[in-house]
Design a protein around this nucleic acid. Structure first.
Length: 428
RNA sequence: GGAGAGGUGGCAGAGUGGUCGAAUGUACCUGACUCGAAAUCAGGCGUGGCGUUUACGUCACCGUGGGUUCGAAUCCCACCCUCUCCGCCA
């Protein structure tokens, strides 16, 4: 959520910056609601003040045993008007809140302006693209012989799921373990185990709700008369970041750095026909996620660091990649600045996203009321950031394709061998 | 699933429908005493909004949402959550 003060002070400026990411801010509506709010709030508070002082007088008079019927009659006339004003105030405030909740974050000034993926900016390329003296296979063809089984997954669940068997399942686990160990032992993250099902408040906190409900898997749940659904997490970002929701943390606790390995569930509504082959785009996939809560001054330095932590994994695995700075039009709803890391996939002869690292400034913290006590002792919104380190399924795909041999076997990257019982190769 | 207890400020913990945004303790900050510290004493110390802007005024907030009332932390209703015991269970 944006700071409503920013909208009050510089509405046109905010609208202009949001326009660069293709969002049209309804400034007229905002101004209208604000004007209404001001009038109604002032009147409501005035009436409340009168009621409060009269009621106080009644109390004092009664204590002295005086007659209070005159004051009672006077204050009684306030009732309806006050009630009506209060209702109106709630209405206008709710409308403002709803307007604010669907406004995306403002892009950082360094973000290149653009409309789509095509306008993203390449920051760097790392590693050398492997050359093959045979016809490369994609991970589906390679995997078929090694334990990747889509037919069984379709039977037990449906499209966009996969079953891994044997060495492949172990390699998948090895990747996650390796990532966790690296981030905890070398990058200073604290490993956390978190719920995979969260409540609506958490989804609102990180920005998935109210705007993107159709991307989520919903778990219906009765709550008294109404219902407030649970949701399957689309990323560990949600439960991990929400650990600080409604908290005021001590200054010394910052930065907080967490890493979590979780499955992620996405409905992939609207992506029909895209990446239908293979395990690039699944309803369920594993991811190791890095999350940091930091002092506002440290936000962007922390993002560079976090990006480096994710890159380290690719470097250790010997996978070639490039880092892209997303343009204004391609960034996610809550992000102020995003780097994508794209790994080289030989069979597709291109780079594909394997990690996304974003700084959110106070956007999520404001939604979550996540704060720290600053040097003056006052609560102040902290900054959040996160990034994949890395998407496990896509990393598996990259390993298979980049390490494939002419005979259809796959060499296991050295750093993973300790997790594979010393095995050096997966063979059909 | 059954029975019971409870949700109040950073923490602990009072609170009979009226002067309660809330006693008290503790933590924390400032000052005094001290060479310094401890102890002691004095003062300060919740969050958010709005209006004027170093001050000030005002409103809201005692798990959440409704209700009763001139007035609710306090009474009523519903819900959520926590704890204890029993049952079941990985």
């Amino acid at each position: 959520m944006l700071d409503i003060q920013a909208l009050r002070n510089d509405l046109d400026g905010v609208a202009k910056r949001l326009a660069t990411r293709g969002f049209v801010l309804d400034t007229a509506r905002f101004q209208e609601l604000e004007a209404q709010r001001k009038i109604i709030q002032t009147r409501t508070q005035e009436l409340q003040a009168r009621r409060n002082s009269s009621s106080k007088l009644i109390g004092q008079a009664k204590a002295k045993g005086e007659d209070v019927s005159a004051i009672m009659a006077e204050v009684a006339t306030l009732g309806d008007e006050l009630k009506q004003a209060e209702v109106q105030l709630v209405e206008v405030q709710t409308a403002l809140q709803q307007l604010l909740e669907v406004i995306p974050n403002m892009p950082h000034e360094s973000v290149p302006v653009g409309k789509s993926e095509a306008d993203n900016e390449e920051v760097r390329k790392v590693g050398t693209i492997p050359q093959f003296d045979f016809a490369v296979k994609d991970h589906v063809d390679l995997g078929e012989k090694l334990g990747l089984d889509f037919d069984t997954a379709i039977k037990i669940s449906g499209a966009r799921f996969s079953v891994l068997k044997g060495g492949l399942a172990r390699l998948h686990r090895a990747l996650a373990q390796f990532m966790l160990d690296t981030h905890t032992d070398q990058h200073g993250y604290t490993e956390v185990y978190v719920p995979y099902i969260v409540n609506a408040d958490s989804m609102r906190g990180t920005g998935q709700l109210p705007k993107f409900e159709e991307d989520l898997f919903k778990v219906p749940r009765q709550m008294g008369e109404g219902e407030e659904n649970f949701y399957l997490i689309p990323t560990a970002e949600v439960p991990v970041t929400n650990m600080v929701r409604d908290e005021i943390v001590q200054l010394e606790k910052l930065p907080m750095k967490f890493v979590a390995h979780t499955p992620c569930f996405r409905s992939e509504a609207g992506s029909y026909g895209r990446d239908t082959r293979g395990m690039i785009r699944q309803h369920q996939f594993d991811k190791v996620e890095l999350v940091q809560m930091v002092h506002p001054d440290e936000s962007y330095a922390a993002l560079e660091q976090l990006l480096g932590h994710a890159e380290t994994i690719l470097q250790k695995l010997g996978l070639p990649y490039r880092v892209m700075k997303l343009c204004t039009g391609d960034m996610g709803f809550s992000a102020a600045l995003t780097y994508d890391i794209e790994v080289w996939l030989p069979a597709q002869n291109t780079y594909r996203e394997i990690s996304s690292c974003s700084a959110f400034e106070a956007f999520q913290a404001r939604r979550m009321q996540a704060r720290f006590r600053n040097v003056q002792g006052k609560p102040e919104l902290l900054h959040t950031l996160n990034g994949s380190g890395l998407a496990v399924g896509r990393t598996l795909v990259a390993v298979l394709e980049n390490y494939q041999q002419a005979d259809g076997s796959v060499v296991i990257p050295e750093v993973l061998r300790p997790y594979m019982g010393g095995k050096e190769k997966l063979t059909p």
